[in-house]
């Protein structure tokens, strides 16, 4: 097989991109919409070849690309799956993405994968473990790695620090970048009753390389409010407002619209990205 041509370096701009999902790939290839950048789920491209890779190579040739993982299970007490990490490394070498990320969570224990973004206790032990894991990943990939704060539906009684301190310390100590999911901050602020603005203020703003936005759903008929990070709806008004606060703190930052369930027409995602772009524009104007 002939060696593929190297890709041109394409940094992700401080504009609003969209998460590229299977139902839209064909249209994106045919129509080349003016999207500033795309993000894909890394594991969807863990297969060795085939149509998915052919499409991604064409997209990478024309658009900046971010690889966003959901399966590395960074915070598992068991240790990293080195085969998973090696596959990610090959994918990174193949596509030379501008950004590579995964989540501050765990998903595997005792060889069983729960294939979910499960919450870590905000303890010193979990923090120390996450710091060493992120360093291990950055060493293996030979580049900066981003970690994302996740939505959660419970917290642990033996937590020793607030989530915001856990995230900020992890980024500071491991020297990684932060993928700040503003929707997840909002969801957790409702689920765990904290001030989301205070959370944003506690973040290491210089390390925020990317922002995620998505829609949540609300659980009804419960004695307390509970939001689920469903990625199935438009971004909520309160989250747009919190996004403006995040931009004011971090400056213009690459922003991604995520939609993973009940995926609508591409136009709906482009319109959501447009709403983010308006706010990025206002942020740029404010600092100019």
């Amino acid at each position: 097989m002939s060696e593929p041509l190297p890709f041109v370096q394409r940094p992700v701009p401080a504009s609003a991109g969209i998460g590229l999902r299977a139902p839209h790939i064909e249209r994106v290839l045919a129509e080349r919409p003016p999207v500033p950048w795309f993000e894909v789920h890394s594991e969807n491209y863990f297969g060795a070849g085939g149509a998915m890779h052919a499409a991604l190579a064409r997209i990478r040739a024309d658009y900046p690309l971010s690889l966003h993982g959901v399966g590395l299970s960074l915070g598992s007490a068991d240790g990293l799956d080195l085969e998973h990490l090696a596959t990610l490394r090959r994918l990174v070498d193949r596509y030379e993405p501008a950004l590579v990320s995964d989540h501050i969570c765990w998903g595997e224990i005792g060889g069983v994968h729960l294939n979910d973004l499960l919450p870590l206790p905000c303890t010193q032990e979990a923090l120390d473990l996450m710091v060493s894991r992120v360093q291990q990943v950055q060493d293996a990939l030979g580049r900066e790695f981003l970690v994302e704060n996740v939505s959660s539906y419970l917290s642990f009684r033996h937590a020793q620090m607030p989530e915001s301190a856990f995230v900020a310390e992890l980024v500071r100590r491991s020297g990684c970048g932060l993928l700040l999911d503003v929707n997840n901050v909002y969801v957790n602020s409702v689920n765990h009753d904290f001030d989301p603005l205070q959370y944003l203020r506690a973040m290491p703003h210089d390390s925020v390389r990317e922002i995620h936005l998505a829609g949540f759903t609300r659980k009804d008929r419960l004695p307390v409010p509970l939001l689920i990070d469903s990625h199935s709806r438009p971004v909520a008004d309160d989250v747009w407002s919190l996004y403006e606060d995040a931009l004011a703190l971090c400056g213009p930052t690459p922003t991604l619209i995520e939609w993973d369930q009940d995926i609508p027409e591409l136009e709906v995602l482009l319109a959501e990205a447009g709403r983010a772009e308006e706010r990025l524009h206002a942020c740029r104007a404010a600092i100019a």
């Binding site: 594991e43 998973h84 998903g107 595997e108 994968h113």
Partner: peptide, 9 residues
Amino acid sequence: HPSTCGNLQ
């Protein structure tokens, strides 16, 4: 037969 991999494929 629980899942044993972070990649659902």
